[in-house]
């Protein structure tokens, strides 16, 4: 595309884009920089480079936020949610994309409607109901809530992948005597597997980072997620910001590394869900 003949325009554009870069990176740089500094030095100047690298911030953060246990909790919760969402949403997305049932339209609109339902609209009865059933501090119960909240998005995204599969493939498989289930599991699923991977990544990101539901339903120390453990650590009054930033980096780093490695999938998935519906 030849939008620009003019060098000055181009230079100005890059300047402006560079400012955007600074805005996005500045708080992240502060996070990384200060995770390596003692609290006293942060108070002096949060912008200064560390004089000595304080790796013990990380060992203290690891111990105080019990990341050994809480990161494992987060990982189990995230993995359970991914499995539940991917398995249930791919079934639904297939049926809705191929209009296999008469009421496909109503169901699609219903699911679209629930993507916009405020959490507060179902949180309170759900909490007191789960409390009565003894499901507070239950990782699987929270994974079910995440599945309910995230699967409409997953269905809408996977639907676009199923729509892209040529109908002839399905018809050929049926001609060869494949059952409905075989058509779905042996023909369709392998073709849309890139879509399922994208959904898994995005749902994984959401569940790992989720705060409101995790802090409400997993209050007990033994089931806490890493994000909630970080929140509690950072909320104490004797704030050692070096340790807090180290804890922040521990929780964030796995997500950021995965994001940078697989950025195209993340961006296409999140943007695709919004642009295409």
């Amino acid at each position: 595309m030849n939008l620009v003949e003019n060098r000055t325009t181009l230079r100005l554009t890059y300047c402006a884009l560079g400012i955007g870069l600074l805005i996005a990176l500045f708080p992240i740089a502060l996070l990384v920089l200060n995770s390596l500094k003692p609290a006293a030095q942060i108070v002096q100047n949060p912008l200064a480079l560390p004089e000595v690298l304080r790796w013990d911030n990380f060992t203290r953060a690891w111990a105080d936020a019990r990341f050994g246990a809480t990161m494992l909790n987060s990982a189990i919760l995230t993995a359970t949610t991914i499995v539940l969402v991917c398995s249930t949403a791919s079934l639904t997305a297939y049926v809705l994309a191929r209009r296999k049932v008469k009421s496909w339209k109503i169901i699609t609109f219903y699911l679209l409607g629930t993507t916009t339902a405020p959490i507060q609209l179902f949180l309170f009865p759900l909490y007191f109901g789960f409390a009565r059933l003894g499901l507070i501090n239950n990782t699987f119960a929270v994974a079910l809530i995440y599945t309910a909240v995230y699967s409409p998005f997953a269905v809408m995204l996977l639907r676009t992948y199923f729509l892209a599969v040529p109908r002839e493939l399905e018809e050929a498989a049926i001609m060869d005597g494949a059952s409905h289930w075989q058509v779905f599991s042996k023909v369709m699923l392998p073709i849309v597997s890139p879509g399922i991977l994208t959904v898994a990544l995005i749902i994984g990101l959401y569940s790992w980072n989720e705060f409101l539901i995790a802090t409400t339903f997993l209050q007990g120390a033994e089931r806490q997620t890493a994000v909630v453990a970080f929140f509690l650590l950072s909320g104490q009054y004797t704030s050692d910001w070096g340790e807090i930033m180290a804890a922040a980096l521990i929780v964030t780093l796995p997500v950021v590394i995965l994001f940078v490695l697989l950025q195209r999938r993340f961006i296409e998935g999140m943007a695709g869900g919004a642009v295409k519906g």
């Binding site: 996005a24 708080p27 502060l30 942060i42 705060f211 940078v260």
Partner: peptide, 28 residues
């Protein structure tokens, strides 16, 4: 694009504390 998108993948609890402690705070 990737850099602009980066803040979106950081947990809200973490973003909030970074701004609170590293930018807004009159102490740190």
């Amino acid at each position: 694009q990737v850099i602009y998108f980066l803040p979106m993948v950081i947990a809200t609890a973490i973003t909030a504390r970074v701004w609170q402690g590293m930018i807004y705070s009159p102490v740190s």
